[in-house]
Design a protein around this nucleic acid. Structure first.
Lengths: 124, 124
DNA sequence: CTCCGCCTTGCAGCGCGCTCGAAGTCAAGG
DNA sequence: CCTTGACTTCGAGCGCGCTGCAAGGCGGAG
């Protein structure tokens, strides 16, 4: 079981040390991260896996407060799986909707790009 | 040529009247919107088409300041098409990258969802 | 004339998600 | 012993994109 300093955890996760502390303070992690005798945080593999999940939720646009709710459910332990599932399903719906919308706008922008390509280099 | 009040333009574009004024102040439109004798804004079809383009750029995540730059180029008139094209192409790159990233995170989340579906309703 | 409602401007405020700074602790290296 | 640098906490600040508010104008209905 490796255990990482906050700087190493930051590098691993792509977050900053600041953000890692902020997530912990804000209840996005499952527990307080353990400490070395010096008081420095020590991130376990399990911590990193959870942070990765948080990162995925954030990267797909889930607000901090919803990630916090999800973390709270997981922290509570067995018995609320249906609720967790509902939360994730609702999020998926939203993300798929957004993906579709962005794609559609992108196609319209592509059309505009094609017009400019013709004007800039009509020969091509 | 229809011409709309700000409330009607807001409804048409899906923006608020506040946001329409804000965009105009902030240089996202091509010109100041014309005024009725009363001083009220009157939006033309052309205005609405441009605002739709702005909306597409915004909806795909382009920052206000880049939309402003693009508007400035278009306002300048003929001769900078290559620059406009470059701006749009750079934006498209970014959006496609983000779409890919979000899709990939979404697939990982779907995997998690599948696990919960099994736990919540193992029979299915 | 009065009222209502939609519009005007200017400016302040807000929610989100970090991000930064100050001040202090501790361990290792020269 | 002294310095360096990675860490700690706490609280303030920031960039973005609106959003809301106050104070006032104007036009039509009753």
């Amino acid at each position: 079981m490796t255990s990482l300093s906050i700087a190493e955890a930051a590098e691993q996760t792509g977050l900053t040390a600041h953000t890692l502390r902020y997530y912990e303070r804000d209840g996005l992690l499952l527990h307080s991260v353990e400490r070395a005798p010096s008081g420095h945080r020590r991130y376990t593999d399990e911590d990193l896996r959870w942070i990765q999940m948080v990162t995925r939720l954030r990267a797909t646009g889930m607000p901090i407060r919803d990630v916090r709710r999800y973390a709270a459910l997981v922290r509570e332990g067995d018995g609320n799986e249906a609720e967790r599932l509902a939360l994730l399903l609702a999020h998926r719906e939203l993300v798929e909707h957004q993906l579709a919308e962005v794609s559609s706008h992108l196609r319209a922008i592509d059309h505009k790009i094609a017009l400019y390509e013709n004007r800039v280099n009509p020969a091509s």
